[in-house]
Structure formats: structure tokens, C-alpha cells
Amino acid sequence: MKSVLKNREIWLALAIVAVVILVTLRFPRFSQPGNLLTILNDTSILMMLALGQMVVILTRSIDLSMASNLALTGMIVAMVNAAFPMIPIPLLIAGCVLVGAALGGFNGMLVWKLDIPPIVVTLGTLTIFRGLVFVISGGAWVNAAQMSPDFIALQRGSFVGLPVLTWFAIVVAALFYVLMTRTPAGRSFYAIGVNPTASVYTGINVGRTKFLAFVISGAISGLCGYLWISRYVIASVEVASGYELTIIAACVIGGVSIAGGIGTVAGALLGALFLGVVNNALPVIGVSPFWQMAISGAAILLAVVLNARGERSKGRVILKKAEGVA
């Protein structure tokens, strides 16, 4: 029981349920299944991105370039689709994942081989990737009319009662769950975050593991590039501008420690969902959407204060009488 109460994910889930209940008390329609599914669908992209970012943060790194990667891959796929509408969508999606992974791999190589701090690398690629969107598009937009019907329709379709976009999130979440809990690579992300020195002794290549983390966050950004563009049916330089911080916010709220080594798939998903629920609840309760940003800022601060209290070391327990109490 004690361990359940210590579990951050439980508390976060309760917080989300509380928000839903509070809003429902005044606006019963908010918690209708249809609306809840909409929220889930709206949050799907953020959930996937948060999972990718979590892997990077676990390794004591950070990827500020995810949103720019998403915009660049999205622009590439939109332009390819506009020029060659006959290319089947699954192939385009595979291409997105590859391009995204390659961009992430570029970050990863700089971190691995040159040992440049991740925040510097991704600060640079954040601007480079975003600038490249302009270079390849010449500043022009790709709009709905230029995209093939399949391109737009795929993720809007539904499958077994759920939108395809939601299915993407479910499958990605399941893959991440298996990756993070059941594979040596997944465990090595935790290991190098908890104790890089010990990881070396255990035979883990710290640099290569970080590289892999960046490839994963890149691949997810690439996948979300397609999903974002086909969902909002516009590809421009401004796509997901500034979104990198929302992704990090989801992770922090989800209990992923910026110091590395701590974080779960469920936590990252719930962190994203929390932001999604709040954002969807605001218009319902008649609060201007301009409150969104301040609320997510306050949520980040609250989450980090609460998490830090849990992580704070209590000092050594030396006194006999203090054992078990602390």
C-alpha cells in the first residue's frame, strides 16, 4: 500500500481524474465518452513525442530539436506527397521515420563522438532544422489542396471504434513499454542515467546508448511530422514552433527527472494527457485559451517541486532509533 502511495503515476492519474470530475460537475458533457476520446486523440501526438523525449532525458541529455525535426520531416513529406501523390502513404510514413531518425542520429553523433553537451548540440540543430524548412520550401506553404486525399484521410479514419491517430499512439506506447522494460537497450537507458560510471563497468557503451536515444527521439519526431501535417493539413515554417518546450513540460509533469535515470512510459503518457485535459477543459469552463500557457507553466513548477520532495535524500541513517522512521 505504501509503495502504491509513493507511486507518482498514481497521483498524476488521480489529478487528471480530479480535473475531469471538477469540470464535469459543472459541464456534464465534458466527460461523455466521445469528448474524452477527442481529448485522447488530440493528445496522441504529444504523448508520442513525450515518450521520445523521455528516453533522451533518462540518459541525462535533452533534445531541444524535436519540434524542428518534426517541422522539417513534415515539410519534406508534404512536398514529396504534393509532387508524387502516387507514393503509398505507408511508404511515406516509413520515410518520415527514417528521415527523423537520421536527423536525430546527427544530434547523437555530435554527442557521442565529439562529446558536445546535448543542450548545445540540440540548441544548434533546433535553429538549423527550422531554417532548413524554409530553405527547402522557399517559405511557401503546402496546403490541403496540394496534399493527396489519402495523405489527409489515413489518420482521420477510424479502426475498431478509435481514430487511427489514437491507434498510432497506442502502438507506439506499447512498443515503448516493451522497449523500456523488457529489452537490454531499454534498461541501459536507465542504467546510464542512474550511474554512468557503473554502466561502463557493466559493459554498457554510454556514448552509443545516448546516440541510440537521440535516434529514437528523432524517429518519433519524424513519425509525428507526418501525423502533425496530415492532421492540421498545413505544412509551413511555423509548424510546432516552440513545441519542444511543451514536450519537455509533459515529461517533467510526468515525473521524468531532468537529472536522468528516473521516468516511466506511464508517467510520460500521463504528463502529456494532463496537459491535453487541461487544454481541452479551458474552453469548456469558459476560460480564455490564453490561460493555457500560464497553467502549463504553473503545472511544471508544481510537478518539479513535488518530485523534488520525493527525491530529496534524507541524509544517512546512522542512529538506531531513526531506522525505519526515515
Binding site: 516493451v178 522494460t181 523488457r182 529489452t183 537490454p184 534498461r187 536507465y190 542504467a191 542512474v194 550511474n195 560510471t197 557503473a198 563497468y201 557493466t202 559493459g203 554498457i204 535515470g261 528516473i262
Partner: peptide, 29 residues
């Protein structure tokens, strides 16, 4: 003590790097 992993379980500390796998190649907790 520095070469162990505080945040991981005792079992995982013992088996990190050579964990038993199931038929699918996944870690068998």
C-alpha cells in the same frame, strides 16, 4: 558501492547486462 544502480531493483542490479531472456528475446523478469 559506486558501481551499482540506486534507482534499479536488487534483481536488476545483479542481472544488468546478462538478464535472462524469454523466447522472444525479451527480458524475463
Amino acid at each position: 558501492e559506486t558501481v551499482l544502480f540506486d534507482e534499479l531493483s536488487v534483481a536488476e542490479n545483479i542481472y544488468l547486462g546478462h538478464a535472462p531472456r524469454n523466447r522472444l528475446g525479451l527480458i524475463d523478469w
